[in-house]
Design a protein around this nucleic acid. Structure first.
Lengths: 208, 208
DNA sequence: CCATGCAGTTAACAACTGTTCTCTGGAATG
DNA sequence: CATTCCAGAGAACAGTTGTTAACTGCATGG
């Protein structure tokens, strides 16, 4: 399928990925707007000037990180929402899925939560675009559900946006609870599930 | 009531406020973690070393900004929520109130949204503490409402947290729409109102 | 009125930043 | 096999940063 690229292009992509990985680690304790290009190259063990072969600036690198963090998440979102039925177990499974994702990709989640309102405009824009895509995809899935009969397209997008924002809030809560005792993570799990349930109830009675 | 402080203390507080104001302006286009102390003093027109007379570090200044941005907001929140009745006009008035606050204090709102998940731990902690206080106050007001009869304290806090987060999301949306055409701000207004309405509906049917 | 306190200044420091230009070694190309 | 290409290295630049120490001048309190 994919063209086997030469050992030269391969090495280049390897360095590029090393820069992204190093940046992600450094960004756990600071914001992108304070991330220095030298800092990143130093962490990788490469000359500062090599940075320019891959990114115009750290803001540019940030945009690439957004793609890495959110780009591959679309199928996951779609299938999660599409598995219809508003049962309590379904909500629990969704919350559990968020918890798992935070556990396996904490740095990516932290990056998105941090830079969504961060100090670097192009990165904010990239995140906003991705989240809007998420909302539209959730809306399309919700539209297929019989519960959505009689809903206007606008109201469906309103609900989808609410769900997407709620997922991000939940993810951020799990992030803060990562090093906390298990009971704290349980508290977050129950809180998030009840909030989703309340929204689902509001959804079912929306047209009355 | 307040003791008239000497011309010396007065001048000191004036400089301190100038530092806070200058920092807030600089923070509109960057994050706190990249804000330099020299940058702030330069904007005020004061020697870099003068900074230390007021703050240990820029992180320390950030914590002071949190107090300035959120400290005086508690009475406003209380009265907004306490004015009972879930009528549509009440929701509209709440959304309008948020819009007004964002218009009159855009830099403060931006700062809180940005640093809530930002790269400076003490500031994140200060914001979290304030938001938790908000949630508890909202919970206490909700408890007085007859609609809350039969609700557990835990569920009330769950709903209060949902409201607080939703207010912040709404404020952040208004912020992004500040320089946008009036129709975009109207769109945000209607979106936020419908989301609050859906939550209110969920609230009314919670105990079924 | 005089001694003390202290907000703000001045000067200097080592360390760091982004960006430029020049160079090199090895892969890619024909 | 010879030529071109290009990812990365190296050195140098002007400018920035946080922090230190010792100072000055003026409001304060005895």
């Amino acid at each position: 399928m994919s063209h086997t690229l030469g050992i030269r292009q391969a090495q280049k992509q390897k360095t590029r990925q090393a820069l992204l990985d190093a940046a992600l680690v450094l960004l756990e304790e600071q914001s992108l707007s304070s991330l220095g290009l030298r800092e990143v190259t130093r962490a990788v063990g490469v000359a500062p000037t090599a940075f320019y072969r891959h990114f115009r600036s750290t803001a540019d690198l940030g945009v690439a990180l957004v793609e890495e963090a959110l780009g591959s998440l679309h199928p996951m979102i779609r299938t999660t929402v599409s598995t219809a039925s508003d049962s309590a177990e379904r909500i629990d499974r969704t919350v559990e899925l968020i918890a798992r994702h935070v556990e396996t990709h904490p740095a990516h989640v932290r990056f998105v939560a941090r830079e969504r309102h961060g100090g670097v405009q192009p990165v904010r824009q990239a995140i906003r675009a991705q989240l809007e895509r998420f909302a539209e995809e959730v809306r399309d899935e919700l539209a297929k559900d019989p519960v959505s009969e009689g809903w206007s397209a606008d109201d469906l997008l309103m609900l989808a946006t609410l769900y997407v924002d709620q997922m991000l809030i939940t993810a951020s809560l799990f992030l803060e609870a990562l090093d906390a005792p298990a009971e704290e993570r349980d508290r977050v799990t129950r809180l998030a599930a009840r909030q989703l349930r309340l929204i689902s109830i509001g959804r079912r009675h929306w047209l009355e």
